[in-house]
Amino acid sequence: MSAAQLVGVFLASILTENYILCKFFGICPFLGVSKKLDTALGMSAAVTLVMVISTAVTWPIYTYLLVPNDMDYLRTLVFILVIAGLVQLIEIVMKRYLTSLYRALGIYLPLITTNCAVLGVTMLVLDKGAEDPSFGYLAALINAFGAGIGFLIAMVMFAGVRERLESADIPESLRGLPITLVSAALVACSFLGFSGIADKLL
């Protein structure tokens, strides 16, 4: 893959294939941790890290261990296992060196384990690789990184929206989660406008 194509993969994973706003993965942290900007940033950084590292680990496991042994049907199981281990590892390291972020993220950090966005990235890059043989290890990593950045952008944007919602005069029956879901839908609609942009780049 040429450098321009890799840039196209990166941009596509942020805009047209945004894991939260276009594919609707990872809605739990999207709604749960987006109340404050700093926790949203911390969570997105953690998710990005997990996405890249888990793709870096699961791609070789799939390509060199599962496929040659005709056991690619096991990939969901194996990937979940590896991702869970990685999240635990990051949690241990974070507890030691980033204590304040560790406390701020709370339950959402272990929940990255079951975050479907992470599993989604690791599985979907394999499908892309199967469709297009030139989509290799590097492209997969860039795709995972872009997915993380897309996650970050969605979280930060939505944290901004929610901070505005705090002081808005909302009808009583819509206060809290209902208005959050409505505004999430509107933010997702705005990302429809990007469809087609990155196709030209690829």
């Binding site: 496991i61 261990l65 599962l66 042994n69 056991m71 096991l74 199981l77 194996v78 296992l81 590896v82 869970a84 281990g85 635990q88 590892l89 241990i92 390291v93 507890k95 030691r96 060196y97």
Partner: peptide, 27 residues
């Protein structure tokens, strides 16, 4: 058997790594 072995071995490796990490980075 091979499926069980594969998942088991990966689980074992992950477990060992986590145990080592929790000892190295113990708070």
């Amino acid at each position: 058997l091979s499926a069980v072995t594969l998942v088991g071995v990966i689980g074992l490796i992950v477990g060992v790594v986590l145990v080592i990490a929790s000892l190295v980075f113990a708070v």
